[in-house]
Amino acid sequence: MARPPRFDVKQLLDAAVRLAAAGGPAAVTMSAVALEVGAPSGSVYHRFAGRAALLAEVWLRTVEGFQEGYFKALETGVDARQAGCAAARHVVAWSRAHPEEAALLLYGAEDFGRADWSEEHLQRADLGNQRVRASLASLATALGAEDRQATERVALAVVDLPLSLVRRHLRAGDPLPAHAEDLAEECTAALLGSLPTASAPAPTAPAAG
Rank of each mutant, 00 (worst) to 15 (best):
M1H: 15
D8G: 09
D8F: 01
K10N: 02
Q11S: 01
L12T: 04
L13Y: 04
A20N: 03
G23D: 01
A26D: 06
A32S: 03
P40F: 02
S41E: 11
G42Q: 11
R47P: 13
F48L: 04
L54D: 09
L55T: 11
A56R: 10
L60F: 09
T62Y: 06
G65E: 03
L74T: 05
L74N: 12
T76G: 13
D79P: 15
Q82V: 14
A88S: 13
H90C: 10
S95Q: 05
A97I: 01
L105C: 10
E110L: 08
E110K: 13
F112L: 00
A115G: 14
E119T: 15
E119M: 03
A125K: 07
A125I: 01
D126N: 08
D126E: 13
G128H: 08
Q130M: 12
R131S: 04
S135W: 02
T141N: 11
G144Q: 02
V158H: 01
D160H: 08
L165S: 02
G173R: 09
D174F: 14
D174V: 14
P177W: 02
A184N: 02
A189G: 03
L191T: 01
L192P: 01
L192Y: 02
S194F: 00
S194T: 11
T204Y: 05
T204C: 11
